[in-house]
Amino acid sequence: MAESEKAAGKEKRVLRRQFLVGGGAALAAGALSVAVPQPSSAAECKPSYPSSTGYIVYDSRLCWGCQSCMFACSAVHYGNANPALSRIQIIRDAPSFTKYPLDIVMAVCRQCVTPLCVQNCPTGAAHVAAENGNVRVIDEEKCIGCRMCLQSCPQRPRRAVWNPSTQKSTKCDLCLDAPFWGRKGGPDGEPACVTICPSKALKLVHEAPPQEDVSGYDVNLVPPQPKTKRKPGTPAAPKA
């Protein structure tokens, strides 16, 4: 059953573009109050949190849709392959075979400046890891499986992930706790998804991208093309 069906009937239809506002800051008290009535929204968010020192930005035009990042994510965290447990979701096969650039949606945890998952966690399992560059993480030991973080996430689809085998939530930790990753993770390390991406469509940055809109994280990562002199009379290269 789709999550939307739960709220069917009483839900006000919210356009995706309207819904995907960042960190929830300007969001949408309206949208959240309808779809997720219990947790507090960013607008109501009283505490302020130190910003993360690491963020993953992406280029949705560069992505191949191979989902290597998803397999890498589950491999480094769980030692097996399960894209449903990946903390990054590359959603492809748009209905009616919609063409580029609408064929793929990249759902990457934003390490929100105002993290509602942290704000609404009743046990402190979702917290800001002060000792690790303020990355927003979930301590599975403390998680009671209330799914509040899933409901709180203002992004669509939600970035927090439900693990049915442990009955707990998880979220992107920039590979801070990735026992099957042979490299250092975290904001000063190499998150597996970024390193493994064959099209270089993901990048770790250290400044918070603009939070107001989804486009703040969807950036141009095309490497600069080497300048070559064109011979007179030869046609220009076709545009990508």
């Binding site: 059953m1 789709a2 999550e3 939307s4 069906e5 069917a8 995706r16 819904f19 959603i91 748009a94 209905p95 949606v105 759902a107 669509r156 689809p157 939600r158 049915p164």
Partner: peptide
């Protein structure tokens, strides 16, 4: 997939 909106929702299976 029922009414799951592409690119916006997770579909619940079990």
């Amino acid at each position: 997939g029922g009414r799951t909106r592409f690119g916006e929702e997770w579909q619940k299976i079990g």
